[in-house]
Design a protein around this nucleic acid. Structure first.
Lengths: 231, 231
DNA sequence: CGTCCTTTTGAACATTGTCAAACACTGTGG
DNA sequence: CCACAGTGTTTGACAATGTTCAAAAGGACG
């Protein structure tokens, strides 16, 4: 399947250092698939048959327990997910569903594991990737345990604003999912937005404008060890 | 420093597959140190100078923000901590303090990183270790987001009971820290214990007895994808 | 124009946190 | 051995935070 997507994947840090021969073998065994929105790609507890790579669209990682559900992360192109389960050949800890029409590359887990044993650059790239994932989850845990929902929302908005490099931006997900991601109910999120108005947050639909960044920052007290993406 | 501790360390999965020569070089550059209880070994935000290995005693990983503090994990012998920061050479995301008199091996981070580049078995062992850490944090996040504090306590007790292979066991940490670890206040924990009495939990000081495991399990609804240690 | 879904709002409720005080445990020094 | 201080734990009253339920309002789409 000599399409264009292998180039995009090749440029991922995870695959960049891999032997060309190995990379090609891996891609030969893989295939791309287009999924409509809201399709469950993998289910918590299943055994990892494929390492997934999001080439376009976006994917929600979530989990259920006792009738409750929570959103744990969103995967954007181009990146992989469920790497840890694939490497250790243990059941998924999260389920995944497409948020929009998405193009996903499916790499057979066995092939990935076999290459991991053989290709040293690949093994090291996995370390980098996993370290990043690990640190991201630790930051998220700190966010959850050290902050109130209002503070989490305030810091989330500051992060998004920084990402958009603008004081005005659109939310990248439904408020419903944002609430779940931040660990609160939609009702509570709605009220939290209201509570942030005095600190200079204007909300219209999913358009956000931070009119007083100073004030919001004073309230949110962002920390590099919770909120910085690259650290 | 030809003492006995290198053998214990050598048997860790992280170092077991390493070339003997490399391992010896790593140990030559390292040193052991005894710390009294309640000593802060590393501080959030610092740069990782050493990879730490707990040989005896125990260490608390915690974090502070805006005057609040939370306990994120306890490290028991023999295992390492802050591996991710060491590998990526990025600031610590957590602080660490001894809980009791502890013996810690300090491996210079630069040496560890250098070996990571050279020793393929070591690089792969790090992947295994990091995957495990990552999955542990994900489970912890699910515990926090999907359960109430009462449910978290109930499941914690079941896990401890399983670990002790007995319905009666002693708590391995102060209630104060347990509360912080479970994401609640000491007062709330105290009341939570009371609330679990009807489900067959007897508490006397830090001695716990689960008199009706069936009933408690029915309430706690443990899940392999949150509560199993090895999965 | 309806229909479906999300979002918002209100009120009641549940859970959790705060503060203050009492209690229990531990180890010290008289 | 006892009194005492220091710390951790428990308890009670109260406040803050977050959830639930019900209903209304707003948007998207056929």
């Amino acid at each position: 399947m000599p399409e264009s997507y292998p180039n995009e994947i090749r440029s991922l840090a995870l695959f960049a250092g891999m032997e060309q021969e190995n990379f090609e073998a891996l891609m030969r065994g893989s295939y791309v698939q287009n999924f409509p929105p809201h399709v469950e790609l993998i289910t918590e507890g299943d055994t990892p048959d494929f390492l997934h790579i999001v080439v376009s669209g976006s994917v929600d990682l979530f989990s259920k327990w006792n009738g409750r559900e929570t959103s744990l992360a969103t995967v954007h192109p181009v990146s992989t997910f469920i790497l840890a389960a694939t490497v250790k050949n243990l059941p998924y800890l999260m389920s995944a569903r497409t948020l929009e029409k998405s193009r996903i590359v499916l790499v057979p887990s066995e092939d990935a594991r076999a290459l991991f044993d053989v290709d040293n650059a690949f093994a090291r790239a996995i370390v980098t990737e996993l370290s990043q994932c690990y640190r991201a989850v630790v930051k998220n845990t700190k966010d959850l345990k050290l902050r109130t929902s209002l503070e989490r929302l305030a810091n989330y908005l500051l992060r998004q604003s920084k990402r958009a490099e603008s004081n005005a931006f659109d939310l990248t997900m439904e408020k419903r999912r944002l609430a779940s991601f931040l660990g609160m109910t939609p009702e509570n999120l709605s009220r939290a937005f209201k509570s942030l108005e005095p600190y200079g947050v204007r909300v219209q639909g999913n358009h956000i404008e931070i009119t007083d960044c100073e004030d919001l920052t004073r309230f949110a007290k962002p920390s590099p060890f919770i909120d910085d993406n690259r650290a």
